[in-house]
Design a protein around this nucleic acid. Structure first.
Lengths: 348, 348
DNA sequence: TTTAGCACTCAACGACTTAGAGTGCTAACA
DNA sequence: TGTTAGCACTCTAAGTCGTTGAGTGCTAAA
């Protein structure tokens, strides 16, 4: 669509703007890049690029700024070239950092967010493996005392969730154990979100002698299972956004930080888009949520085996260093998948 | 030390400054408060108060600003008058809000932070019950598969901690159960921080037939117990600090937010001071940590029975609305204690 | 089609002025 | 001796104004 010279000029502007955050003029381009044409020519081309929607002018006597459309073009190009080459030394170095003091999933993800934010100097996000779609590996009830019972659920994605509930009346250890075994037999291997009323009734039929107890327990379990579906969010480098001139405005900064602080929205942000692409990028106005309509979000999946179970992401101004972010996000994500495999793998 | 008129003028200045955040001049005082003297007299008194260290001047032709010493005087006075009266309607209203969707400890504390921040319009903090000093109510090992074992520890403060570890080789369910029962017998009722090498050796002696296995498990358990001592931090309203004119400076705002984001420091901040006083206040330079040397921190304890197990707090500019904060913090804290008692109580 | 030249635009910056709030001192007063 | 009116003085905040410089867009020539 764009001829080669226009593309060259556009990329030059994007590169300069990513570095300087200041509107780029025609002379800056001709001085910094050897295009073999004069600034007047560049000026004409820039005017065309503006008409085509790739550039914007903050005001009539300022230079040009890339539009979201320009970044989109640029990023799509980038994605084609970036994937094939993985720097293995770099990958192993990242792995080493990720494993530092990370014996469990939560520390692994915490480390990932921290590392990503440190490398990229943007805000980094990570979401813990989602229970939805995960299979129950272990469900267990343990009496804590006469009326309190601890329910523990372990998923095949390595997530452990606890829930304490109280019975209406005393209940014996034997009763609890019987029910616990029963539940385990029935539910092991099932997807978490398949536990519904029908299944509950089936369980009740099976151990009818404990009907009274089960009747009381099932709704509690169901309620607990709702909580169990919760995922955790790890965010790091939230204040880094304040370093960028586009966020020198306090009101903007506040909106952004509040947005990142809101766990529920971030979960939606990360999990509500498709899980098919390895690297997902939404630029500026492509974002659904108002507070980040002048940010870009880049996310990557991590997996257990071949199943996508969670996401990590980086969010920053639209003029972010896409190359650096995409590269590192990708490296971190495949490292996470590998580490999870060694933590949980070998045994499905 | 200060005569009555000086006190009256000082309090007037503090009150005005809390509201306006702007240096207070002698005329402002005489207009807003009926002191029965002229601005010239007030001027003389203010000069004295400055010499005594209760007031500061931003520059020679500006009004005066209260010093930390002034706030300390003011707050100590306030504390004497505030405690006795508890508004029971208000207390119950707060309780209702705290209990909304709060079936478990983490939600209760989350709600507390949210509510406190909403009421006070400052940043609110809550720390989950500390394991240190808590007694083990239940410790349990469950095999997840051939080599993975889930350890669950429940404390009498209602904290549940999980830890998954892998054995070097396969281990039978019976073995795990025997060890689990053994540990439970030995450790139940003991303070978490009393589990050390001596005790480990004792346990090993007792079930010598499993020595090989126990030898492998004990260090893993010890390592896990370290993690178990971790507490969680709930923060809410971090960005509220940006609403105050004293934080219009981006660099200051950044330092503050980064400080609040650093979980480890916040844990120290909340737990490292004495637990004896119900309400603890540190004003400006009284704070140990540089980033909050122009903030005031007010904390309150919450309890299980008569044992202090955690803290909540509010942090804001030194010119905070101490009366409002102290009052609400106190109400929230006694509500938390009451709710914890009904959640865990009756059974020590 | 490209380019040199030039008039025009506009934000950013510094210099300057003004307004206003406040202080501190002095001298008079109760 | 404490209080107060009066006044000169100080200093910041806000507004005005000209200047600078980067940049554009148009025109006409190469």
């Amino acid at each position: 669509m764009l001829d080669e010279r226009k593309l060259k000029i556009l990329y030059a502007i994007i590169n300069s703007y990513i570095l300087s955050a200041e509107p780029i003029g025609s002379r800056t381009i001709t001085k910094q890049y050897d295009l073999g044409v004069s600034s007047a020519t560049v000026r004409n081309e820039m005017s065309d690029l503006e008409d085509l929607g790739y550039l914007n002018k903050p005001h009539s006597s300022a230079g040009r700024v890339p539009s979201d459309k320009a970044y989109r073009l640029y990023v799509d190009q980038l994605l084609k070239m970036i994937k094939p080459k993985i720097d293995f030394d770099r990958k192993e170095a990242i792995k080493k950092t990720l494993l530092r003091e990370a014996r469990e999933m939560d520390q692994l993800l915490q480390n990932s967010a921290r590392l990503l934010s440190a490398i990229t100097s943007y805000t980094a996000l990570a979401v813990s493996p989602k229970m939805k779609g995960a299979k129950i590996k272990l469900i267990q009830l343990v009496p804590i005392d006469e009326i309190q019972v601890l329910m523990t659920i372990v998923s095949d994605t390595g997530v452990v969730k606890n829930s304490i509930f109280r019975m209406n009346g005393p209940i014996s250890e034997d009763q609890i154990n019987t029910i616990s075994n029963m539940l385990n037999d029935k539910l092991k291997g099932l997807p978490v979100d398949r536990i519904n009323d029908d299944l509950a009734n089936e369980i009740i039929m099976e151990i009818y002698e404990y009907k009274n107890v089960i009747d009381k327990i099932i709704p509690i379990i169901n309620k607990s299972l709702e909580d169990v579906q919760d995922v955790d969010i790890y965010a790091d480098g939230i204040t880094k956004i304040l370093d960028f001139p586009e966020y020198k405005d306090l009101e903007k900064a506040k909106t952004f930080i509040s947005f990142i602080e809101d766990k529920d929205t971030i979960v939606e942000l990360l999990l509500n888009n498709s899980l098919t692409q390895d690297i997902e990028i939404s630029i500026g106005s492509e974002n659904v949520y108002d507070p980040i309509k002048d940010c870009s979000l880049i996310t990557a999946n991590y997996r257990l085996g071949d199943r996508v179970i969670g996401k990590i992401g980086v969010i920053g101004p639209t003029r972010m260093d896409y190359y650096n972010v995409i590269n590192n996000l990708y490296l971190v994500s495949i490292n996470i998948s590998e580490i999870i495999d060694t933590l949980l793998g070998k045994n499905r």
